[in-house]
């Protein structure tokens, strides 16, 4: 096993797939010659050539559209959108074409495209480099939506996404590229080498789509989260002295409702956490599923810890970002005796 941060794990996933499958092609802005803004594709164009790792113009609509055509014609494109905040010019192609091709051709045609895109805040990116738009895509039928929280899952899920025959939107929480983050920006960042999930196999393996993971078993309550907030939630629960069971959703679509609901039935209490805005956020879907499946087992109303319903702020990032303090408030409410 090798020690890898998330950037290296993702790079390794694409390296493995470029080596195994001649149909795999990478494409995106600045990804080849430059190596990617976050260095996720560093060295891959040198290793596999400009015909396997394509530099594209700044044209997100064109990138997605070309990937669809390539995929329909036998390739497995992995397109990078440099920031999730830049994905909207490609949104028409994603929703109207990519997501529906299989359905409207009644299965004759399909487009195994993976769209990788860094998301989330915590890097002082302000309103156009910090967004978490995952719910926008989970709302589109035909797309699969993933968000890993650690290097091991990042590599295994990306390989599974590339091998999947459906289109996948693969969100990479950029705050986690270099290390786990517990929600305290004043503390020095810890590297992935100190985290068990920084141990990553060099070769091929898959983390299956549609499987959540119990990151930590516990009895007091269930915290359902994904991406950066998995780590923030764990730290907040420890600080509150709670024996929390933490479920890392990982795969938003398809959703592993069984693992989530089994945990909530066991603990009877649930906090849902994500960075994205609250109203119509993915937490609302999680909450609905849990309420439908676990209502008679709940000891308290389910709480949500989320970003504010505002654009991502410039100067007040750490007020917006779901903080340990906001978790503490949710914990108090959800832990009240029934």
């Amino acid at each position: 096993m090798a020690q890898m941060n998330m950037t290296q794990a993702l790079n390794s996933a694409m390296d493995v797939m470029l080596g195994r499958d001649p149909a795999v092609v990478l494409m995106g802005e600045d990804i080849g010659y430059f190596g990617g803004v976050f260095r996720v594709t560093d060295g891959l164009q040198r290793k596999y050539g400009a015909h396997r790792v394509l530099d594209t113009p700044i044209a997100e609509g064109g990138i997605v559209a070309a990937a669809i055509g390539m995929a329909v014609n036998g390739l497995r494109p992995v397109a990078e959108i440099q920031f999730a905040d830049y994905i909207y010019p490609g949104f028409d192609q994603i929703t109207s074409e990519l997501a529906r091709l299989r359905y409207r051709s009644a299965g004759d045609f399909y487009a195994p495209v993976t769209i990788r895109t860094p998301c989330g805040g915590g890097i002082r990116g302000g309103q156009t480099h910090s967004q978490s738009p995952e719910a926008v895509f989970t709302h589109v039928c035909g797309l699969k939506v993933l968000m890993p929280s650690n290097p091991y899952d990042a590599k295994g899920l990306l390989i599974a996404a590339i091998e999947d025959d459906d289109p996948v939107i693969f969100f990479e929480p950029k705050r986690l590229y270099n290390g786990p983050f517990d929600g305290d920006p004043a503390k020095p960042a810890s590297p992935w080498s100190t985290h068990p999930k920084g141990e990553v196999p060099e070769g091929h393996y898959r983390v299956p789509l549609g499987k959540a993971e119990i990151v930590r078993p516990g009895r007091d309550l269930t915290i359902v989260s994904y991406g950066t907030m998995v780590h923030v939630a764990a730290a907040a629960a420890s600080a509150a002295g709670l024996d929390a069971e933490i479920v890392d959703v990982r795969s938003l679509v398809p959703l592993d409702a069984d693992t989530i609901c089994e945990s909530v039935r066991k603990t009877g209490r649930c906090v849902i956490a994500h960075e994205a805005t609250r109203f119509s956020g993915f937490g609302a879907e999680l909450l609905s599923v849990i309420q439908e499946e676990c209502f008679w087992d709940l000891q308290a109303p389910i709480q949500r810890v989320t970003g504010w319903d505002t654009p991502y702020p410039h100067a007040f990032e750490w007020e917006y970002f779901p903080s340990p303090a906001r978790f503490a408030t949710a914990f108090r409410t959800v832990m009240e005796p029934a």
């Binding site: 802005e29 600045d30 010659y33 430059f34 803004v37 530099d55 594209t56 113009p57």
Partner: peptide, 11 residues
């Protein structure tokens, strides 16, 4: 340069 990519690499 469009960030790190020279114009003649993309146009």
């Amino acid at each position: 340069y469009a960030m790190g990519t020279a114009l003649d690499r993309t146009e």
